[in-house]
Simulated scan of single mutants.
Amino acid sequence: MARFLMRRLVLFILALMGISLLIFLALRILPGDVAAVMAGLDAPPERVDRLRRQMGLDRSYPRQYLDWISDFLKGDLGRSILTNRSIASQVGIRAQITFPLILLGLGVALLLGIPLGCAAALARSPRMQSFSHMAAIVGGSVPALWSGLLLIMLFAKGSGLIGLLPSQGFPALGWAQPGQALAALILPAVSTGIIVGAGIMRYTRSLLGDMLSSGYVDMGMACGMTRTQAALRIGLRLASPQLVSVVGLTMAEMITGVMVSENLFALPGLGSMLITDVGNRDLPAVQSELLLLAAFFLFLGLLVDVIHRLIDPRFRGAARQEVAD
Results as ranks from 00 to 15, higher is better:
Val37Lys: 10
Val37Glu: 14
Met38Glu: 09
Ala39Tyr: 10
Ala43Tyr: 09
Ala43Met: 11
Pro45Gln: 12
Pro45Thr: 06
Glu46His: 11
Arg47Thr: 14
Val48His: 03
Arg50Asn: 09
Arg50His: 11
Leu51Glu: 08
Leu51His: 00
Leu51Trp: 03
Arg52Asp: 01
Met55Gly: 05
Gly56Val: 03
Leu57Trp: 10
Leu57Tyr: 11
Leu57Thr: 10
Asp58Gln: 00
Ser60Trp: 02
Ser60Pro: 09
Pro62Ile: 13
Arg63Cys: 06
Tyr65Lys: 04
Leu66Arg: 02
Leu66Asp: 01
Leu66Trp: 11
Leu66Cys: 04
Leu66Ser: 10
Asp67Ile: 02
Ile69Val: 15
Asp71Leu: 07
Phe72Ala: 01
Lys74His: 04
Gly75Leu: 13
Asp76Val: 08
Leu77Gly: 09
Ser80Ala: 04
Ile81Cys: 05
Thr83Ile: 09
Asn84Gly: 02
Asn84Leu: 10
Arg85Ala: 15
Arg85Thr: 05
Arg85Pro: 04
Ser86Thr: 11
Ile87Lys: 06
Ile87Ala: 03
Ser89Ile: 01
Gln90Leu: 12
Val91Pro: 00
Val91Trp: 01
Val91Gln: 04
Val91Ala: 11
Gly92Lys: 10
Gly92Arg: 09
Ile93Arg: 15
Arg94Thr: 06
Arg94Cys: 07
Gln96His: 02
Gln96Ser: 05
Ile97Gly: 04
Thr98Lys: 07
Phe99Thr: 02
Leu101Pro: 11
Ile102Val: 07
Ile102Glu: 00
Leu103Asp: 06
Leu103Glu: 00
Leu103Lys: 05
Leu103Gln: 03
Leu104Cys: 02
Val108Ser: 01
Ala109Ser: 15
Leu110Ile: 15
Leu112Phe: 11
Gly113Gln: 05
Gly113Cys: 00
Pro115Asn: 14
Gly117Trp: 03
Gly117Ser: 12
Gly117Asp: 02
Ala119His: 01
Ala120Gly: 04
Ala120Met: 03
Leu122Thr: 04
Ala123Phe: 04
Arg124Pro: 00
Arg124Trp: 01
Ser125Cys: 08
Ser125Ile: 04
Met128Asp: 03
Met128Glu: 06
Met128Asn: 05
Ser130Lys: 13
Phe131Gln: 08
Phe131Ser: 12
His133Cys: 00
His133Phe: 09
Ala135Glu: 03
Ile137Gly: 06
Ile137Thr: 14
Val138Gln: 10
Val138Ile: 15
Gly139Thr: 08
Ser141Thr: 12
Ser141Trp: 07
Val142Asn: 05
Pro143Arg: 13
Leu145Asp: 04
Leu145Trp: 14
Trp146Val: 15
Met153His: 09
Leu154His: 08
Leu154Lys: 07
Leu154Glu: 08
Ala156Asn: 12
Lys157Leu: 10
Lys157Met: 13
Lys157Glu: 12
Lys157Gln: 15
Gly158Val: 11
Gly158His: 11
Gly158Trp: 07
Ser159Gly: 00
